[in-house]
Amino acid sequence: MSQIAAETRQGHIEVRDFALSYETIDGAVEAVTDTQIHVEAGEFVSIVGPSGCGKSTLLNAVAGFLKPTSGVVTVDGSVVTGPSAERGMVFQQYSLFPWKTVRENVEFGLKMRGMPKFERARAARTLLGLAGLEAFENHYPERLSGGMKQRVGIVRALATGPKVLLLDEPFGALDAQTRIIMQQILTNMWQRLKISVLFVTHDIDEAIFLSDRVYCMTARPGSIKAEIQIPLERPRQQSMMMSSEFLALRRGLMSLIREESLKAMGGEITDLGMQGLGIELQGQSIPDIL
């Protein structure tokens, strides 16, 4: 499946004129507005932005869990109407089935497709071998470390040979060391399988290190503030994170995000925090003070 995807370069994601709002008692609240993004076949694209900017909302719409209020999401020209196995997803909370062993978790997508038991066990073992998890195939997820759980999560999402892989802050709950190793594993797998990746994170280093291109989102209601090409050569090494090129990209992206984070927090601080603490702002705006 993945070989075919590589040959015909499938997995082109297109999000056009996208807006999504929630209905509340006070009226509609816009989560994401006026957004255009695209992911070319085989490209690795990240979305960064301050928390609550709607980047996960956008990803969930691509996955088919949320319907856009206006606009359209297409994958290879066909409109996304609901979740499907052709768009694999990896969640921050791992979301492995606790009642299934590691191998049964990986087999799940294949089972849903009706693959015979023996065949899918063999396929799952091969994939687990690639992720260095064959020794744990009969373990229940509860007994694995966070990094191992997320490797299982990635392998499970890849098992059905999806055209695109969607990741929602997948390494957010991991410690720094494990996170770096996981990033390396993910890039290796991506290069081998040549599928399109849409990756949501709030970690700027992670976004630069992994991606071909990074979208930076504005504070709520979220929209695309900037699109940044990452010209770093591949395969990427951890040592690149110290290069002047990397640091320049980092600085640029950092200032973009900082602006938006302050915008997102500024209101809260003046409205709630500062008044409650009895701090006088003396007419200065929060960004000035900070």
């Binding site: 609901g82 196995a85 997803m89 089935f97 009642w99 799940f108 849903m112 059905t160």
Partner: peptide, 23 residues
Amino acid sequence: VLVRAAKCLGAREASIFREVYFP
């Protein structure tokens, strides 16, 4: 999230009931 994970892996209503909700 487990229900969403199952849906992403191609599970339909009956399978979600059997493989997720019940266990």
